[in-house]
Design a protein around this nucleic acid. Structure first.
Length: 562
RNA sequence: GACUAGUUAGCUCAGUUGGCAGAGCAUCUCCCUUUUAAGGAGAGGGUCCUGGGUUCGAGCCCCAGACUGGUCACCA
């Protein structure tokens, strides 16, 4: 591994510290009793504090220095004064250890007293300090003045691959994840207060059900069967409703083996909740109260900014049927129309259609193309076509529709809910219809029938309403992030390419050397059969890697294994 | 998958017509006891993403590839 100059310097400091009897990675606990935030909020002149964190600014001015210590809650200024730290004649702790051997990014523990500087900055006067952990790699620390950041660490590739560094130097990034966790906590509280029960269901499933998506497949060795990473947990939660729970919910990591873009990561988090004896109308009420609660818990207000849009999560939200929405935005009334009529209408709207598309799919295409993007404020779109919703109860007033809603925000879906289909015979027929659609070429149709789930329904499932919420998308809206990567600690990335250890040419030369070392340089060059250019590059590569060594003596130039 | 932009020092970025590889911060040395993007003086640091090609000469031009971002397509 090639180390930069700065990395080498820090490794040398490690050696020097050990020579002075200072362990750069001590094992014992450090008795922290304050955070930076606590100091600022409860500031008392002269108070003794013990704090720890990373040195993020060091500003040496001779016999006194200022620094900024960053802990989990922010930064606090620390003042290192030579004669405070070294009351006796030996000033080496300040002159050598502090000034020469500490670096930006190092963790230090500090005991000191609070005071206010001439310019009014609340500061810790360091009485004693201890190195807690040495940083060998320089952090990409930006400079700040008047709230402006200079030379910020912004390269998205580096930020996502090295999130640990991103979190250290970009406080706003940390805030996003704090809000993310606040959202989960708020939602959990809301459900628990309503009396619902948090559960866990299998991630490894023999049949990937509950949604239409390509799964990741894996293999269980002992059972010698294929298993799928879950694409949804819906069918398992409904089994629990069959089992007698009134309300169950789960935050579910789901996995879908599909494309990645700024709103899709191969693994993502959905929340699904199922409540017995309810219908989708009740769930709409519940949903808008839930989101109002969550938005307030996360941001302190129901209002949120997303790009150019101001959105408000204050309940209630508008409710529009899909048919009304399409009529409103296209002038076309789908009610009572045949598949052929709808296909023609879609063609007239310049929407790409093909013959594999059934009626439901066609309607969905029209809605997606012409309507969806218009809903900025939270809006419930209701009553989806039956074909698109194989797990949803038929609409009480119209057998072509289902009792389903999606909640749209800024033209994106963030929640999806049904009056759940609990008729086992109807459910079996819907699954079989999906099989036919899949055979016809509809790649969104489900191609598995979960017979165990059908058996559960046959025992009887109470009328139930269920809802799924895309947690990643929701937190994007609540933190004004346009990319899912910004709300996932470790978004999926293509693996970093390892540098090739040795080129083919280098391997060939190394092989010759192995059997014959040392060897005359020109002899080796001739044996390798390489062109001048290739030879030069390869032998330089080998010596740089410490594999070969060129030796000059009275008899000429020789190459030997290093 | 298509199109497009980018990849140069630890970080953020310049780099002219193809002619010795640049800046700020960071690093190192020296000065400086209330600074705060501290200041002053000096120094070091490069696989210009990779591999080919053109050329006397390539960070720059050509070809191929890698990775990342954006837009679109696909995908709830």
């Amino acid at each position: 591994m090639q180390l930069s100059e700065q990395e080498l310097v820090r490794r040398e400091k490690l050696v020097k510290l050990r020579a002075l009897g200072i362990n750069p990675y001590p094992a014992d606990l450090f008795p922290v009793d304050h955070t930076s935030k606590q100091i600022k909020e409860n500031f008392e002149e002269g108070k003794k504090v013990t704090i720890a964190g990373r040195l993020m600014v060091i500003n040496i001015q001779g016999k006194a220095s200022f620094g900024q210590l960053q802990d989990s809650e922010g930064r606090i200024q620390v003042y290192f004064n030579r004669d405070e730290i070294c009351p006796g004649d030996d000033k080496s702790l300040y002159n050598d250890v502090f000034k020469k051997l500490l670096d930006l990014g190092d963790f230090v523990g500090i005991e000191g007293e609070l005071f206010t500087t001439k310019v009014g900055e609340k500061t810790v006067m360091v009485k004693q300090f201890k190195l807690l952990s040495k940083a060998l790699k320089p952090l990409p620390i930006p400079k700040q003045k008047d709230g402006k950041t200079y030379d910020a660490f912004t390269d998205p590739e580096l930020r996502y691959r090295q999130r640990y560094a991103d979190l250290v130097v970009n406080p706003h990034v940390k805030n996003v994840f704090i809000k993310r966790t606040k959202l989960f906590t708020a939602m959990r509280d809301f459900f628990n207060n309503a009396g619902y029960f948090e559960v866990e269901t299998p991630v490894l499933q023999p049949i990937p059900g509950g949604a239409a998506a390509r799964p990741f497949i894996t293999h269980h060795n002992s059972l010698d069967i294929p298993l799928y990473m879950r694409i949804a947990n819906e069918l398992y939660l409904k089994r629990l409703i069959v089992g007698g729970f009134d309300g169950v919910y789960e935050f579910s990591k789901n996995f879908r083996n599909e494309g990645m873009d700024k709103t899709h990561n191969p693994e993502f988090t959905a929340m699904e909740i199922y409540v017995s004896y309810k219908d989708y109308n009740w769930m709409m009420d519940f949903c808008e109260r839930l989101l109002e609660h969550c938005a307030t818990a996360v941001n302190g207000t129901t209002e949120a900014t997303f790009g150019e849009h101001k959105i408000n999560f204050k309940a209630p939200y508008a409710r529009v049927t899909m048919a009304d929405s399409i009529k409103h935005f296209t002038g076309f009334d789908i009610t009572g129309k045949t598949e052929a009529e709808i296909r023609q209408a879609a063609k007239d709207m310049h929407i790409e259609v093909d013959d594999t598309m059934g009626k439901g799919k066609l309607i969905d295409e029209i809605f997606g193309e012409k309507c969806e993007g218009n809903y900025i404020q939270p809006t419930f779109i209701t009553d989806y076509p039956k074909e698109m919703s194989p797990l949803c109860k038929e609409h009480r007033d119209n057998p072509e529709l289902t009792e389903r809603f999606e909640l749209m925000v800024c033209g994106k879906e963030i929640a999806n809910a049904y009056s759940e289909l609990n008729d086992p015979i109807d459910q079996r027929e819907r699954f079989e219809h999906q099989l036919k659609l899949a055979a016809k070429g509809d790649d969104e149709a489900t191609e598995f029938i979960d017979h165990d789930f059908l058996r559960a329904l046959e025992y009887g499932m109470p009328p139930t309403s269920g809802m799924g919420i895309g947690m990643d998308r929701l937190i994007m809206f609540l933190t004004n992030n346009q990319s899912i990567q910004e709300v996932l600690f470790f978004p999926q990335m293509r693996p970093e390419k390892k540098k090739i250890e040795m080129s083919e040419e280098e391997k060939a030369i190394a092989a010759i050397l192995k059997t014959n070392s040392p060897i005359d340089l020109n002899e080796l060059k001739a044996q390798s059969g390489l062109s001048n250019k290739k030879w030069d590059k390869s032998i330089k590569g080998l010596t740089a890697k410490g594999i070969a060594k060129v030796v000059k003596n009275d008899d000429g130039l020789f190459v030997e294994i290093a």
